[in-house]
Design a protein around this nucleic acid. Structure first.
Length: 337
DNA sequence: AAACGTCAAGTTCCG
DNA sequence: CGGAACTTGACGTTT
């Protein structure tokens, strides 16, 4: 049963960014400080928008803190902006929102290169530090992939497992592992989960692109049931990723919107257990709204539905991006130095 | 003001 | 073996 629908990072309705950055050669402590603050202020606005639209699941951008794991950024940002972060976290808790993060493709915990592994560790560590600074519990997760497959499945998995085992508890207990569209199937990731204890986030599009041996509805149900079983009480309800195949593109490529059929087909094979569903689509929350509308036409609703918080639907409508392009607002934007 | 080339990072696969 | 693709917005220089 579906609890919450969520979306990733950008609220297209708002014309603000939580991922303002700068070029490495322009990075100075002052510049980074200004960018981080602006991104945090905008994150707070996005969360308010979410609450006003009854969206209780949201993935925070990894661009929130520019160069967070790069030596150019020596700021103790978790400290400097501790009050603001705590305030944002309190807002999340007050509205019983669930937030997550997903480090980029460069985060390869199972790389053959020690330097790459070191960088990947730094990356998951800062993501965990951010969620810790918000003061959110361990249902707020960090999504990672198993990584590369250079020297074969077993050694690649073994390196991943060894690296994860040595991570600090505070980091490891936030990690979840996702099946990908080419290299590691859901069954592979279940093996990783057995060895690490990490929950498995099941990506439905990736599974269809890379199903391994789990192809029939009965097989799929078994695999999803096993993925869901990897989520313990401290992890919150299981989560899946949902997107639709972009037409004419390579398998696994996200479409701009989500076709309702893709979720309906999943619901038909899904075990009877409550789960959250993260939408990965270019049209972001607009795809969520459209999916919600389409689901309602099939009499499917989010089980965790609660009334939108904080504002009237009129002020909500006013905040949505108008049909015609609007000028960029100055507020919340770091002006070009 | 708009357009467009470029941007921290890795790995895979194509040509 | 070199380079594009992945996926993608935002920066910042140029027009």
């Amino acid at each position: 049963m579906l609890r919450h629908l969520g979306y990733v990072a950008i609220a297209r309705s708002l014309d603000i960014s939580t991922g303002q950055t700068c070029r490495l050669r322009h990075a100075t402590p002052e510049r980074l400080r200004a960018l981080i603050e602006a991104n945090l202020v905008n994150l707070r606005r996005v969360l308010e928008f979410n609450a006003a639209n009854a969206i209780w699941l949201y993935r925070i951008s990894s661009d929130l803190v520019p160069f967070a794991s790069h030596p150019v950024n020596q700021l103790a940002w978790w400290d400097e902006f501790g009050a603001l972060l705590a305030d944002i976290g309190a807002y999340v808790r007050r509205h019983r929102m669930r937030v997550s993060m997903h480090p980029g493709q460069f985060t390869v915990l199972n790389s053959l290169s020690p330097a790459v592994v070191r960088a990947a560790i730094d990356e998951v560590v800062w993501h965990a530090r951010l969620l810790d600074a918000l003061g959110v519990d361990t249902t707020a997760k960090i999504v990672i992939h198993v990584g590369g497959l250079v020297d074969g499945r077993e050694p690649a998995i073994a390196r991943f497992v060894a690296t994860v085992r040595d991570l600090p508890d505070a980091v490891r207990r936030r990690l979840i592992v996702e099946n990908d569209e080419r290299l590691f199937t859901a069954e592979d990731v279940l093996e990783v989960s057995r060895a690490t204890g990490l929950p498995v986030v099941f990506d439905w599009l990736h599974h269809r692109a890379n199903p391994g041996t789990a192809r029939t509805p009965a097989d799929i149900r078994r695999v999803v049931t096993r993925c869901f079983a990897t989520w313990g009480p401290a992890d919150g309800v299981p989560k899946i990723h949902l997107s639709s195949q972009a037409r004419g593109a390579r398998p696994g490529r996200h479409a701009d919107w989500v076709r309702v059929t893709d979720l309906l087909v999943f619901l038909a094979v899904a075990p009877r257990r409550t789960f959250d569903c993260m939408i990965e689509a270019k049209e972001k929350e607009l795809a969520l709204f459209r999916l919600r509308r389409d689901l309602a036409r099939h009499d499917v609703r989010e089980r965790g539905a609660r009334p939108a918080a904080g504002r009237s639907s009129a002020s909500r409508a006013a905040e949505r991006r108008p049909v015609s392009p609007a000028p960029r607002p100055e507020r919340g934007r770091v002006s070009a130095a």
